[in-house]
C-alpha cells in the first residue's frame, strides 16, 4: 500500500525535519533573537559589559602567557617550576575561599530588616562588579555558599545563623565596586526603596581582611 505507508513515512520525515529545523534555529539564534528586541540603551549597557569581560580575559591571557614562558624556561634550565606551582596554588586558594585573604575593596553596612533574597542579589551584584572575595560579619561567602532564613527570620549563610546588623566586605577595585553599588538606580538605591526602615552605608576600604571558609569545597 504505497499511499498509506508512503504518506505516513513522508509525514514522519517531514515532522522530524521540522523539529530539527526549529531546534536548530532556537539553539543557534537564541540570544540573537532576544538582542534584536532590546532598546539602544539596553544594547549599549550589554556592549559595555561584554567589553569589560573581554578586557578581563585579555589581561588574564597576557598574564598566563608570561607565566607559561617563565615555567618553560625554568623547566628547560632544570631549576624546576615550584614558583609557578606556588602561584597557581595561591590563586586557586583565593578563588575557592580556602585561605584568608587581604586587599582593598568596599564594605556595605546594613542596619534594619533585610532578607536572604536581597543578600543573594547583593552578592550577585558584587560578583558582577568584579569582587574577588566576599564575607559577611566575619563569615566567608564561598563559591557554593547558599543563603537562607531561620524560623525566627535571621539570615543564614551555609546554615550558620548570622544576626544583624550586617557588614558585607568585598575585596576588589574600591572605585568600581563603590560605583556599581551606589549608582543611580543601582542595587542600594533599590534596597532603600524596598526596605524603607533599613540604613545602608557603602564605604571604600583600603585594607580588608577576610577569613577562609569554614569548610572549603574539596573537589
Amino acid at each position: 500500500m504505497r499511499t498509506i505507508s508512503g504518506g505516513v513515512s513522508a509525514a514522519l520525515v517531514a515532522l522530524f525535519l521540522g523539529v530539527l529545523v526549529v531546534t536548530q534555529v532556537r539553539t543557534q539564534d537564541v540570544y540573537s533573537r532576544s538582542l534584536e528586541l532590546e532598546t539602544p540603551a539596553s544594547l549599549t549597557t550589554l556592549i559595555a559589559n561584554l567589553a569589560e569581560r573581554n578586557s578581563e580575559l585579555g589581561r588574564e591571557i597576557f598574564d598566563l602567557r608570561l607565566r607559561t614562558e617563565a615555567a618553560r624556561a625554568d623547566a628547560a634550565s632544570g631549576t624546576g617550576t615550584l614558583s609557578e606551582a606556588q602561584r597557581q596554588l595561591e590563586q586557586l586558594e583565593v578563588f575557592t575561599g580556602g585561605t584568608s585573604v587581604g586587599g582593598p575593596g568596599i564594605s556595605v553596612r546594613i542596619d534594619g530588616p533585610f532578607d536572604e533574597k536581597a543578600l543573594s542579589d547583593l552578592v550577585n551584584e558584587l560578583r558582577n562588579a568584579g569582587a574577588e572575595a566576599i564575607s559577611m560579619n566575619g563569615l566567608r561567602i564561598g563559591p557554593r555558599s547558599w543563603f537562607g532564613l531561620t524560623v525566627d527570620g535571621a539570615l543564614t549563610i551555609d546554615a550558620v545563623a548570622v544576626p544583624g546588623p550586617w557588614t558585607i566586605s568585598a575585596i576588589g577595585s574600591p572605585d568600581v565596586l563603590y560605583v556599581a553599588m551606589t549608582r543611580t538606580g543601582g542595587i542600594v538605591g533599590q534596597f532603600e526603596l524596598i526596605y524603607r526602615g533599613t540604613r545602608f552605608v557603602v564605604s571604600r576600604e583600603t585594607t580588608l581582611e577576610l577569613p577562609a571558609l569554614r569548610a572549603a569545597p574539596r573537589g
Partner: peptide
C-alpha cells in the same frame, strides 16, 4: 559553569552568565 566569581546579569530580555550572552 557556576563558579565563585559567577554572576547573573539581566538587561531587557537578555541575560549574561559569566559574561556570556544568553536568553530563555
Amino acid at each position: 559553569r557556576v563558579v565563585g566569581s559567577t554572576s547573573v546579569y539581566c538587561i531587557g530580555s537578555t541575560s549574561m552568565v559569566n559574561g556570556t550572552l544568553m536568553a530563555p
